[in-house]
């Protein structure tokens, strides 16, 4: 079957995000369903002592918590989807990265790797493609996740200086040898970075990979959304 090599990694990226999202939501729904069922069981069994009612209130709290978490994930997916609507838009770098990090947490968790953020204050809104930026950062995270041992962490660090946005993906942990292929290769990282108008720099001392995006005039400054 003929494949469109220009779009396949991007579709794989979207697929990974959506499957992680649906997994997350299915889990929250399953917890909610069992919690509601448990309240029903209490009522059917006539368990209505003070102690039972206190337990039921605890279960109701847990249901509300699940709904809150589910809504939070939908908000992140909403942000991610809007990033794909237009090739260019004015957006918050931190908001865009936050959406990505939340949506990738489950993938990282399954690999027993923590995703952490270290965002600079006063990051401006930039005019660019949020989807491309997320795709690039995803590729870098994916590459590092495959190369570090469990119980490691990956920090996504941002900084802003001389009209230049810098986003570093910094792995902390033991490097492991893996046969597993990443979603994209060096050539593709550099090509996406160029399409965004920036470049990729590798730091050999701490294995960090940094995306530099120069010439981003701040229109509005903001914190992390």
């Amino acid at each position: 079957m003929e494949q469109n090599h220009a779009t396949t990694p991007q579709l794989q990226f979207i697929g990974k995000v959506l499957s992680a999202f649906s997994h997350e939501i299915n889990n929250h729904l399953a917890i909610t369903k069992e919690s509601v069922g448990l309240i029903g069981d209490f009522i059917e069994c006539g368990k209505t002592s003070r102690k039972d009612l206190r337990e039921i209130l605890g279960i109701i709290d847990s249901i509300q918590n699940q709904i809150k978490k589910t809504s939070f994930f939908f908000d992140r997916l909403n942000g991610f989807s809007h990033g794909m609507e237009a090739p260019l838009s004015s957006f918050s770098v931190h908001g865009c990265l936050e959406d990505l990090i939340v949506l990738l947490q489950r993938l990282a968790y399954q690999k027993q790797v923590r995703l952490e953020k270290d965002f600079a204050a006063n990051m401006p809104l930039i005019e660019n493609s949020p989807f491309r930026l997320q795709f690039l950062i995803y590729c870098l995270i994916d590459m590092h996740i495959k190369r570090i041992d469990k119980n490691s962490s990956i920090t996504i660090k941002t900084s802003w200086s001389n009209n230049s946005v810098q986003i570093s993906v910094i792995p902390k942990g033991n490097e492991i040898k893996t046969e597993e292929e990443g979603i994209c290769n060096d050539e593709l990282y550099h090509s996406i970075a160029q399409q965004l108008g920036g470049s990729i720099v590798r730091d050999t001392t701490n294995a960090a990979t940094t995306f530099l995006l120069p010439g981003s005039e701040p229109s509005v400054r903001c914190g992390s959304r």
């Binding site: 399953a30 917890i31 069992e34 069922g37 847990s62």
Partner: peptide
Amino acid sequence: DEKAFVDTLAQRLSM
């Protein structure tokens, strides 16, 4: 690995 899920389901199955 979903502790809240397992704990609730365990309680329901035990009942």
